[in-house]
């Protein structure tokens, strides 16, 4: 982790910047550093916010003033080699593709010059890195989608897209965590609630984890939805196969 920079972001936070690009290596460094920071248990840290290229660290200066936290954060960088970082989990997110749930699947297929089944196969075969969350509660910025199924945004955004909708915009893919307007091509929907403010864990995905979608039938979708609503559905995960 060379060339790490410490940037001032006011008097109650600072930003530890690991690079100036969007790539998996930088994101892995950020995740590792965040885990190390949590293990270190430095008093006065309020919360940390990982983004594409940095980890923002919010702290209480009445507990730990700037000079001290900066020193501790620098020390931690030097100790990174000694800290064991577990592999990233991959969240398995069920999706009912096409039909009413994915009204733009046909367009995406036509645009790519392949069949709808092939789009589904490509979309559900990759493990997408969650670079960060932002924009709205629970919205994931995912990387790693095949350019074969890239598609332009809608010319006229829809006024209301239901929570759980899975879409494609350019080479990005993602899930709408709440009902919202939007211009992504919708290819399916997941019954899993990525975001539920009343749940013990309000937001499922975490930056640095991966998401893999898997296709389900209407019957399976309905069964999972029932479990989700009863609060009994547990999202399956598998360990990331090291590249």
């Amino acid at each position: 982790m060379n060339n790490v920079r410490f940037l001032l972001t006011g008097d109650t936070s600072l930003s530890v910047e690991f690079g100036n690009a969007i790539n998996e290596a930088i994101n892995h460094d950020i995740r590792a550093y965040k885990i190390a920071l949590e293990k270190a248990g430095i008093p006065g840290i309020v919360e940390t916010v990982p983004t594409y290229r940095s980890l923002m660290v919010h702290y209480d200066p009445s507990v730990i003033p700037y000079a001290q936290i900066r020193m501790k954060l620098e020390q931690l960088l030097n100790e990174m080699g000694e800290i064991e970082i577990p592999p990233s989990p991959v969240l398995e997110i069920p999706v009912l593709y096409g039909g009413e749930m994915g009204p733009d699947l046909a367009f995406v297929a036509e645009n790519a010059g392949i069949s709808e089944d092939e789009v589904v196969k490509i979309h559900s075969s990759a493990e997408y890195l969650i670079y960060m969350l932002g924009f709205t509660p629970g919205f994931t910025y995912l990387g790693g989608m095949s350019e074969k199924i890239a598609a332009p945004r809608l010319k006229a955004p829809r006024m209301k897209i239901p929570a759980g909708s899975v879409g494609i915009a350019g080479t990005q893919t993602g899930v709408y965590p709440i009902d919202s307007p939007g211009g992504w091509q919708l290819i399916g929907r997941t019954p899993v609630k990525m975001y539920d403010p009343e749940r013990e864990t309000p937001i499922l995905p975490e930056a640095g984890q991966y998401i893999q979608f898997f296709p389900v039938t209407q019957t399976e979708y309905d069964a999972i939805l029932q479990e989700v609503e009863a609060g009994t559905y547990v999202v399956k995960t598998h360990a990331r196969k090291e590249a």
Partner: peptide
């Protein structure tokens, strides 16, 4: 609301 900025919650 602190502790949820990493999940995109302002």
């Amino acid at each position: 609301r602190f502790g949820y900025q990493q999940f995109g919650v302002p």
